[in-house]
């Protein structure tokens, strides 16, 4: 029996090496066999260092994206056009915070610490999804984000529910359940605008025109330029390639755009009978790399706001810690069930 660190979803003591165990080759065989058999790897299992590092990088980036992703939409909470829309938007932004927390917990099961992850976000050493470096210029952008950005995220995340790493897969199950509401509220919002006055329709079309290409970039670089893809697929962290998921997303969106009465801003977009998929135009990858490097419209603003929020919340964390210290060994709110 090993004491401490049971932690199914969390724990810094990620792997307790059994006494006298230096059988790396044996461990590696067991790991490969588990992955091949579609079993899940759990926090305290032996795993290759590179597998652990890849997961920490991916999960942290995913968590950061959820947290930073609160900003573009929160921008419109005070100006939502009705109480109904405001309540929906607040619930959605709160969900994004929740998703970030599920993911940070999953990253912690691999030995990363929460503070360290936040430090890396704040200092720019870890990335978040480039999509959140675009501004939300009009109310219609809230709809376009729900439909396209959350739609692309769902297309990415559904296969991650079967990721080989247990805690990440479980976090994704929870996220996907909640994400469906996000996409539908966005679609409904855009539909209302599309069917509204000519000005409202134009506003919806303008938002879709601006968000379409960045949404396609969310799937990452083309397969032949994606540096981590092959290994991630071998480890069954990823189940489908970037281009495969991007194609799936385009095929899903085309009829949805028709039902909205809006067009997608791509003159080359057309059904290809032979392939059974839509062909679409070339993506401007120079824009993607440029935004990734920090030159997007809002990179600076997003990070500054994030650091500011963290610093301004310091007194709350300090007060809670002081309160906890004062009441150590005292009464708590918990009651035995």
């Amino acid at each position: 029996m090993a004491t401490a660190a049971a932690r199914d979803t969390a724990g810094s003591q990620a792997y307790d090496a059994p006494a006298g165990a230096d059988d790396t080759a044996g461990h590696a065989r067991a790991f490969d066999a588990a992955v091949a058999a579609d079993e899940r790897i759990e926090p305290r299992d032996w795993m290759p260092d590179a597998y652990r590092a890849t997961l920490v990088r991916q999960i942290a980036q995913h968590a950061h994206s959820e947290i930073i992703g609160m900003q573009p939409e929160a921008n419109w909470i005070t100006r939502a056009p009705s109480l109904r829309r405001k309540a929906i938007l607040m619930a959605k932004v709160q969900d994004e915070a929740g998703h970030g927390l599920y993911l940070y917990s999953a990253a912690e099961t691999l030995g990363a610490s929460r503070d360290e992850l936040l430090d890396k976000l704040h200092s720019g050493r870890q990335k978040y999804s480039s999509i959140f470096n675009y501004p939300t210029l009009t109310w219609a952008d809230v709809g376009a984000i729900g439909w396209l950005v959350d739609g692309a995220a769902i297309t990415n995340q559904v296969p991650l529910c079967r990721c080989s790493y247990g805690p990440y897969a479980r976090a994704m199950v929870r996220v996907c359940k909640e994400e469906s509401f996000h996409q539908r509220q966005g679609y409904e919002l855009l539909l209302a605008l599309s069917k509204g006055t000519p000005e409202q329709h134009a506003m919806a079309q303008d938002a879709v025109d601006r968000w379409w290409w960045p949404s396609l970039m969310m799937f990452g670089p083309p397969d032949d330029e994606s540096q981590h893809s092959a290994q991630s697929m071998a480890w069954k962290i990823k189940r489908h390639s970037n281009d495969e998921l991007r194609q799936r997303f385009v095929d899903i969106c085309v009829p949805q755009a028709e039902s909205l009465g809006l067009t997608l801003p791509d003159p080359d977009l057309k059904w290809n009978e032979e392939r059974g998929h839509h062909d679409f135009g070339a993506i401007d990858w120079s824009e993607f790399w440029d935004v990734l490097k920090g030159n997007g419209p809002c990179n600076e603003q997003r990070l500054t706001r994030r650091r500011q929020a963290h610093e301004e919340g310091a007194w709350v964390r300090e007060a809670a810690a002081a309160h906890a210290a004062k009441h150590t060994n005292g009464e708590t709110g918990a009651v035995r069930a």
């Binding site: 932690r7 969390a10 917990s105 929870r174 906890a324 150590t328 709110g333």
Partner: peptide
């Protein structure tokens, strides 16, 4: 799942 908090009540 899991989370961080200063005490049981929070």
């Amino acid at each position: 799942g899991s989370l961080h908090a200063p005490d049981a009540e929070l």
